[in-house]
């Protein structure tokens, strides 16, 4: 794959895999409104993923469309960040992840509205308002849970602590990121870090939650090296399509 195709695939995979994780909450959220909320967020993300995957396939030139890329790639061929694939052990983790990731994603979308790639710029411009809404939803829940009961506070703090190590990977630029930033197609994610940190720290402070210390920072998603739960996620995402090749309705 060429650089722009790989870059589009990274952006698309982040959105696709988080969409799949959020869809898991359908009928499992603490209240009916939250079933709708998380699946609405998932739907926005799926809508963002589709044109990005289609663009990656088109630039690759091997005839793979968005479906082939979503349903027929193996685990090592997915390039999403690790934070979007982690399974949620409770609702607090879903909210913590949405806060950490959408704060990053919003800054990235704002930067990418000026991308030299017309499709990436278009998806980013469309996504800015959607992702701002997602982040706002995560902030509201973070405040409610963090500044809520003893139990909700403890769970929210534990969720932030568990996800914090995975919040470093999005900002670690590799050579492709730097080349894409240099060509005006992408953005160097390291430049987004200070703004991200300020927003997250301010939100956690308002929610009476502590900012965890930086330390262990696992990475590998961009190279196709994933966490243990990722294979199970893909199995759920892909099994129907693989079992009924070419089926439509």
């Amino acid at each position: 794959m060429n650089d722009v195709a790989t870059y589009a695939l990274r952006l698309g995979d982040d959105a696709l895999i988080l969409s799949q994780r959020l869809a898991w909450w359908s009928a499992r959220a603490p209240e009916l409104e939250e079933d709708l909320a998380l699946t609405n967020v998932a739907l926005d993300l799926l809508g963002q993923a589709r044109p990005l995957l289609a663009r990656a396939g088109e630039l690759e030139g091997r005839g793979r469309d968005e479906d082939a890329l979503a349903y027929l790639r193996g685990e090592r061929e997915f390039l999403n960040l690790l934070i979007v694939e982690l399974p949620d052990r409770d609702f607090a983790e879903a909210i913590a992840r949405l806060l950490l990731f959408s704060t990053f994603q919003l800054a990235r979308c704002e930067a990418l509205t000026g991308s030299a790639d017309e499709l990436i710029a278009g998806v980013a411009a469309k996504a800015v308002k959607e992702v701002a809404y997602h982040r706002d939803h995560a902030v509201r829940w973070t405040l409610r849970l963090g500044d809520g009961t003893e139990e909700s506070h403890a769970r929210m703090q534990a969720a932030i602590e568990r996800l914090w190590p995975y919040a470093h990977e999005p900002f670690a630029a590799d050579e492709l990121d730097l080349r894409m930033a240099g060509e005006g197609v992408g953005v160097d994610p390291a430049t987004l870090r200070d703004g991200w940190r300020a927003f997250v720290a301010e939100t956690l402070g308002r929610a009476t939650l502590g900012v965890p210390a930086d330390g262990w920072a696992p990475s590998g998603g961009r190279r196709g090296e994933h966490t243990e739960g990722f294979g199970f996620l893909l199995a759920e995402l892909q099994s129907l399509h693989r079992a009924h090749v070419g089926a439509t309705w």
């Binding site: 409104e33 709708l36 909320a37 609405n40 926005d44 809404y133 706002d136 509201r140």
Partner: peptide, 13 residues
């Protein structure tokens, strides 16, 4: 506002 999300992507309750 009851909920920031509704029955379709474009509506709130």
């Amino acid at each position: 506002e009851l909920s920031r999300f509704g029955a379709t992507a474009c509506q709130a309750q």
